[in-house]
Amino acid sequence: EPLWIRPDAPSRCTWQLGRPASESPHHHTAPAKSPKILPDILKKIGDTPMVRINKIGKKFGLKCELLAKCEFFNAGGSVKDRISLRMIEDAERDGTLKPGDTIIEPTSGNTGIGLALAAAVRGYRCIIVMPEKMSSEKVDVLRALGAEIVRTPTNARFDSPESHVGVAWRLKNEIPNSHILDQYRNASNPLAHYDTTADEILQQCDGKLDMLVASVGTGGTITGIARKLKEKCPGCRIIGVDPEGSILAEPEELNQTEQTTYEVEGIGYDFIPTVLDRTVVDKWFKSNDEEAFTFARMLIAQEGLLCGGSAGSTVAVAVKAAQELQEGQRCVVILPDSVRNYMTKFLSDRWMLQKGFLKEEDLTEKKPWWWHLRVQELGLSAPLTVLPTITCGHTIEILREKGFDQAPVVDEAGVILGMVTLGNMLSSLLAGKVQPSDQVGKVIYKQFKQIRLTDTLGRLSHILEMDHFALVVHEQIQYHSTGKSSQRQMVFGVVTAIDLLNFVAAQERDQK
């Protein structure tokens, strides 16, 4: 057995438009009618409502009807409940999964919650491996369901041993009777949507819809739904939504950006999952974080739909894509998950301010006199920076000697690579993860907040409520011999709460 199987392995699926269902090699399930009293909570997966979006479509000038398939009504709160249950049931049916076995899954959280929910009911041990950027709410729900959680670096490539995929496979090879159901490759993922989600949409719309818009992560949702719609409703256009920084969209030119990270969760990847059939997507749109969270908040405030950030991405694209539809036509959007997962993220004004998705003037509360002053007023001194090749031991000596707790790590040209902190280095040394002679590049981390000289002290204040420091950066445009230009970030300084307090105190003292 291989040590790991690539999540982007070539698909062996034989589905073709027009091929009889009787030739399918898979076990198919028909939607079942729910009894009045459910035998367990797993029976509350599927049969989610279709809700008309009344205000947002009109606000953006849509002539067509805009409908939302509300997947956050599933038992675990997301569309991923469907595939989690289906993968477990299919693994039980073919004898792969037996009582007492362990389920391991690399996930952005929602599939993990679905699997942990099913594992709690069915009696399996469950280990979820997820990147650090995923919300604390997801972690809390997983723990409450009895799952064990392993976190991995957000910026690790999918084929790196440190990625959530790599760590999951390492655990599988170490733990007896453990299984990775593997949402990236498992046919049960798109089949769950082909058999149930798509049929529900067709039934709820009486077979009449002209466009379907869905955000894409593993691709199982859009693949399964689109294949069924292509068979039953061939005139329906399928629109895929991919965040900026991901590479799922086609044509490839759409993916060209210097951005590699994004805040919206559960969609987009740096590889093409095996289950994603991009041939059934008629057109791709890219979405960005700001519009995703703005539209998610709009869905909550104006439509009462308590959905997550990827739902915002989907609707932001839908109001663009559906401009081509006329009166009497219908566009369906998939709202994948609930706001429950993001209470401390985009639902929080403070978080939105820190990330730059909300401006101070958007909030009406009274601010102190210094709130709208610029960061450049602080008069920061030149920063202490270190090269990635310097040793951890030497870096600790320098920081202690100069009285700093942290320093930016830059390359020879001064471009920011990340940050090192005294606390992080000492804990890594004590844990045996690094040696004093190791290069400081081994303990770089990139989960820090950046701020510009033109940003306000109010925004800085919000950042420092949650973080010990902020890195002050400025952009530099560099022209190359080819005539092309590129933008790079340079370090201007490091600012802490002490710097802000000293500035405010000094100004008030001078005024007296």
Rank of each mutant, 00 (worst) to 15 (best):
I239R: 05
G240R: 02
D242L: 04
I247C: 02
A249I: 08
E250W: 07
P251L: 11
L254D: 07
L254V: 06
N255A: 07
Q256P: 06
E258K: 13
Q259D: 02
T261H: 15
E263I: 05
V264I: 11
G266C: 07
I267G: 02
G268N: 02
Y269L: 02
D270C: 05
I272C: 08
T274L: 07
T274G: 02
V275W: 04
L276F: 08
R278Q: 06
R278A: 02
V281Y: 08
V281I: 04
D282W: 08
K283C: 13
K283M: 09
S287I: 06
D289Q: 02
E291C: 13
A292I: 02
T294Y: 13
A296L: 04
M298I: 11
M298N: 10
L299K: 13
G304F: 02
G304E: 15
L305T: 02
L306I: 02
T314C: 02
V315F: 09
A316V: 07
A318G: 11
A318F: 02
A321W: 02
A322G: 05
E324S: 09
L325E: 02
Q326W: 09
E327A: 05
E327R: 13
G328L: 02
Q329M: 14
R330H: 14
C331R: 07
V332S: 02
L335D: 05
P336R: 13
D337I: 05
S338Y: 06
R340I: 02
M343A: 05
K345I: 02
K345F: 02
K345L: 02
D349V: 08
W351A: 02
W351T: 02
L353W: 07
F357C: 02
F357E: 02
F357S: 02
K359N: 13
K359P: 02
E360W: 14
E361W: 12
E361C: 10
D362I: 04
T364I: 14
E365P: 15
K367S: 09
W369R: 07
W369T: 02
H372L: 13
L373F: 10
R374F: 11
R374C: 12
V375M: 10
E377C: 05
L378A: 15
A382L: 14
A382P: 11
A382Q: 14
P383Q: 12
P383S: 13
V386T: 15
P388C: 05
I390H: 15
T391H: 13
G393N: 02
T395I: 11
I396D: 10
E397Y: 05
I398A: 10
E401M: 07
K402V: 11
K402C: 09
D405M: 02
D405S: 07
A407Y: 11
P408A: 10
V409I: 12
V409S: 05
V410L: 11
D411C: 12
D411F: 09
E412W: 09
A413Y: 11
G414P: 02
V415F: 13
L417V: 12
V420F: 12
T421H: 13
L422T: 07
G423W: 14
N424R: 15
N424D: 13
N424W: 15
M425G: 09
S427F: 11
L429N: 14
L429S: 10
L430Q: 02
A431C: 07
G432E: 10
K433I: 06
Q435M: 12
S437E: 12
Q439Y: 12
V440C: 13
K442V: 12
V443L: 05
K446D: 08
F448G: 15
F448D: 02
Q450S: 12
R452F: 11
L453C: 10
T454V: 14
T456M: 13
R459H: 14
L460W: 02
H462A: 14
I463G: 11
E465L: 14
M466L: 11
D467R: 07
D467C: 07
L471H: 02
V472I: 02
V473F: 13
E475I: 12
Q478T: 12
Y479M: 14
Y479H: 02
Y479C: 11
Y479R: 15
Y479P: 02
Y479D: 06
H480C: 11
K484P: 14
S485H: 02
S485K: 02
Q487V: 11
Q487C: 11
M490R: 13
M490L: 11
F492A: 15
F492C: 11
G493P: 11
V495E: 02
L500M: 11
L501K: 06
L501W: 06
A505Y: 08
E508M: 02
R509L: 14
K512A: 15
